[in-house]
Design a protein around this nucleic acid. Structure first.
Lengths: 227, 227
DNA sequence: CAGTGGTCTAGACCACCAC
DNA sequence: TGGTGGTCTAGACCACTGT
């Protein structure tokens, strides 16, 4: 059942993708590729096939298209560092800038209900952060903390009282709201990183949701081993 | 620079994708969608547009296509659990089976050279594991350990002497070899999880490389906080 | 305004599956 | 053998960029 068989045929798209990958390997970051119509003529395939092959390289961050301008070779991905005692940070290269960091009171948003078990009506602090490379937002993060926590510690570090953390990483489609924030089309694949901090009695102390563009970000997680 | 502007136009593809997403939301896992040609007729778009919209849902694991059979609603993703002191395990649902686990001697493969700093000629143990759901391989893992380590501990747990671990998660295209093992086409997006175990003096003790289908797997990482 | 990517179409043919 | 997904084409038109 569900054989999901491997093809025997050699598809033109695969051939074009490999040719492009070789071409790209010899080009510096930021270099512009020939126009799709030119590539189609050169490689003796239709423009559609060129686009399909290109798309596969775009999806994994090797190329980036700019409407009306051209298709360009991408630099290395942004590395997003997650350590148990620290909330997310971006480490280079390439250089990413923490664009905004806002802290505000809110009253138990839907995302927190059921995860962060607080009585109805209790306020939480929402910490929103976003990172840019150039002018392009790559990661947005929202953390939800109990008011009683130390805000200074909580913005960048684990909240007071937290003793362990779960990190769930999922690859999914961007919602309309996320797509809007990340300046991509809805449905674009993103990493969704959901972190929950627990205290000694396994109550959730805070929740952090990170959404970053899968095509432009890698994740790095560090942890000590229990001794 | 690099505005990467948000579109104003309403594309048919987006509309079709949202309609399909709504349709899928009401269907049970495993349900079959109407044929692409029928959807095209119903939604008054070309089959190409239906395929593009469908593809976006396939890429994030909401749908799966079966050549010659149909397009089906996917169940939940396989959760791959990574804990500091334990090598990867799969937790359900859905049920995944550890299909193979082979241990063999090898002499410093390329992937280990430079990462696992051992003198040339020293043998390493290679532990290969793969997990299946049904008959479909979703994850393959290769660990490389120094011969001096306890093999019993090393297969499922952290190697002797390891005190910390780095976990790098990348979203990239499957190589030809990986695609062959996972029964997908080359270029398919995969999670590549690279774990390095370090001893007290920060020498790499072992290296584990996990490759899993991004469309079918989620990652869950647990760690204690330093106290 | 010329050049480029973005979308969409109608149709063709192939490969696979299940009856 | 009919129905399904998989690939590919040639061309059209739109939207955006940069000169």
């Amino acid at each position: 059942m569900m054989p999901e068989v491997v093809r025997q045929t050699a598809w033109r798209r695969d051939d074009v993708r490999e040719r492009l990958a070789e071409l790209v390997a010899d080009l510096p970051d930021g270099a512009r590729l020939p126009a799709e119509r030119d590539l189609a003529d050169t490689l003796l395939v239709s423009r559609t096939t060129v686009r399909q092959a290109t798309q596969e390289l775009v999806a994994v961050g090797r190329l980036a298209r700019r409407h009306g301008s051209g298709t360009y070779v991408c630099g290395p991905k942004v590395t997003f560092l997650l350590e148990p005692g620290v909330r997310g940070t971006v480490v280079g290269p390439p250089e990413a800038v923490l664009k905004s960091c806002r802290v505000r009171h809110s009253s138990v948003p839907a995302v927190v209900t059921g995860q962060l078990r607080v009585p109805k009506g209790v306020g939480v602090l929402e910490v929103g952060r976003s990172w840019l490379v150039g002018d392009v937002p790559l990661c947005v993060e929202s953390s939800y903390l109990l008011d009683r926590d130390s805000v200074v510690v909580s913005i960048n570090g684990a909240p007071e009282g937290a003793r362990s953390v779960d990190t769930a990483v999922e690859h999914r489609a961007a919602t309309a709201a996320e797509a809007d924030e990340l300046l991509v089309r809805a449905g674009t694949p993103v990493f969704a990183v959901n972190r929950r901090y627990y205290d000694d009695t396994d109550n959730t102390v805070s929740v952090a949701v990170l959404v970053c563009r899968a095509d432009r970000c890698s994740l790095l997680l560090r942890s000590a081993l229990p001794r």
